[in-house]
């Protein structure tokens, strides 16, 4: 189980030439720790590297300087990239991608089941129920390619919940949602965090999920 992420002087390669003005970011080129059980809102305008940060923490991208270390419950600290990332993505790190990354030919339920097959975290009934809670009862068995962006965002959110997690990483999760759905999503995330004691790291470009944030970081 991951209990914290520690970022040491992390900087995306894309900023290597221009650099980051000292003190202008709470995340880049500083030493920072994300702790399990805490909620973090990472705010930034476009192009500051919100998605990059999520991808770095999720281990999908490595185009950065500095280091990301992970501390586990056993007390061991090691580089994130030295860990079994596939296993982390099934047991520790749940991610909601900015572009949702759904399979357009699969239905809402099938997309969630595809993830759940790896983890066996929820039953199909629970998945259907969560999708319905987010107002998708009429869209459960519709291919995701036919859903609106907002509906797809809700499906991607439920898929993220289809696994046990130490950290939920949400990359601009509410950019296409109305207030009512944002509130519903916020409640469900709160529920999941309370149940698992996970940490939440959420990026936002302005429209943010109303939530109890322990830390608000400027990127």
């Amino acid at each position: 189980m991951i209990i914290e992420f520690t970022l040491h002087q992390l900087l995306p390669n894309v900023f290597a030439d221009t650099g980051i003005e000292k003190g202008s970011s709470d995340v880049w080129q500083v030493d920072l720790t994300f702790q399990r059980g805490q909620s973090y809102l990472v705010e930034a305008s476009s192009g500051r590297g919100k998605t990059s940060l999520c991808m770095f923490l999720y281990g999908l991208r490595t185009d950065y300087s500095g280091e990301i270390a992970v501390t586990t419950t056993e007390g061991a600290t090691c580089r994130l990239l030295d860990m079994n990332l596939d296993e982390l993505r099934q047991r520790s790190l749940a991610m909601m991608f900015q572009d949702n990354r759904l399979f357009p030919e699969l239905t809402a339920v099938e997309n969630c089941l595809l993830k759940n097959r790896l983890t066996n975290h929820l039953s199909e009934q629970e998945i259907r129920s969560k999708l319905m809670q987010l107002g998708l009862e009429a869209k459960l068995d519709v291919p995701c390619g036919l859903l609106s962006l907002g509906q797809q965002q809700r499906v991607a959110f439920v898929r993220m919940l289809c696994q046990p997690a130490d950290f939920y990483l949400l990359d601009e999760p509410v950019s296409h949602l109305d207030d009512e759905n944002i509130r519903l999503m916020s409640d469900m995330l709160q529920q999941a965090q309370s149940a698992t004691g996970a940490g939440v790291i959420l990026t936002s470009i302005g429209r943010e999920l109303p939530y109890h944030y322990d830390h608000v970081l400027k990127l």
Binding site: L60, D86, R89, Q90, R101, L102, F103, L114, L118, R159
Partner: peptide, 13 residues
């Protein structure tokens, strides 16, 4: 693209 998504959501290569 689909395979990379599968990998992104946790499927081993």
């Amino acid at each position: 693209e689909k395979l990379s998504t599968l990998h992104a959501i946790g499927y081993e290569l």
